[in-house]
């Protein structure tokens, strides 16, 4: 028996909107630790890793580890039917073939349940080792989204370079080139507007903007995004989910053959 009650149901709505276009089907894994997912996009270039820790739920019951295969587009459709202030409860029986999403309005005057069929998914799981990254950039998530969107009107790839001067986002396309440099800025009044650059070694990596733009659909989840880079390693773009966990995107770089 699985029963997870999330008072801030909008978090789950935002998570689904962030990943449904990147990944079609995925297994949600439930354990005593929490509700998690690891899935790659169909071309196996990008990976989504989600963790919602059990402590973040108002009620978390998971009698035994359970893996539930879901079509993310269909799950997103169902969660779209929840109000932004609704409490969302996810329920499933051990060995059952469906999952129920229950939506309660804050004053309990409307209660809805949506049942969705589960599916068997043969997913490939990657072992991602803990890595020391050469450069970690923390910046406003809306700024990161703006940069990725702007650069994708010029070119298809972005070169992210971190030096002691700052972080540079560059692209080139048929019509010309673009460079955007952000300097460390910790002097702002609000911490969510800060840009913080931790650099061990200068690093420069190239990524497909199509994926970066897809990751920025998670912008409503967090005011800040963390971009972790190491030469010849996938970049990690992380959105923290308030006191519950994270949504991380991994993207393989483009490298010289």
């Amino acid at each position: 028996m699985l029963e997870l009650r999330l008072v801030q149901g909008s978090l789950l709505k935002k998570v689904m909107e962030s990943i449904k276009d990147l990944v079609n089907d995925a297994n949600f894994d439930c354990s005593a630790t929490g509700f998690s997912l690891q899935a790659m996009d169909s071309s196996h270039v990008a990976l989504v890793s989600l963790l919602l820790r059990s402590e973040g739920f108002e009620h978390y019951r998971c009698d035994r580890n359970l893996s539930m295969g879901m079509n993310l587009g269909n799950m997103a459709k169902m969660l779209k039917c929840a109000g932004n202030d609704d409490i969302v409860t996810v329920k499933a029986d051990d060995g059952g073939d469906c999952v129920t999403f229950m939506f309660e309005s804050p004053n309990q005057d409307k209660i809805a349940d949506f049942e969705m069929k589960l599916m068997d998914i043969d997913s490939e799981h990657l072992g991602i080792p803990e890595a020391e990254y050469e450069a970690i950039v923390r910046m406003p998530s809306a700024e990161f989204a703006r940069i990725c969107k702007d650069l994708s009107t010029i070119g298809d790839t972005v070169v992210i370079s971190v030096t002691k001067e700052g972080v540079k986002f560059s692209t080139r396309g048929d019509i010309g080139t673009a460079n955007i440099v952000l300097r460390q800025n910790t002097s702002v009044d609000k911490p969510e507007e800060a840009t913080i650059i931790e650099m061990e070694t200068p690093v420069s990596l190239t990524f497909a903007l199509r994926y970066m733009n897809s990751f920025t659909k998670a912008t409503p989840l967090a005011s800040q995004v963390t971009v972790s880079l190491s030469s010849e390693l996938p970049v990690v773009v992380e959105y923290k989910i308030a006191e519950m966990g994270y949504l991380r995107f991994y993207l393989a770089p483009k490298i010289e053959e």
């Binding site: 990976l47 799981h125 990657l126 072992g127 991994y250 490298i255 010289e256």
Partner: peptide, 14 residues
């Protein structure tokens, strides 16, 4: 020219 490698080129399957 630069080539897009899959994630499997960087991480092991479990």
């Amino acid at each position: 020219s630069q080539k897009q490698f899959p994630l499997k080129a960087f991480y092991a399957m479990t």
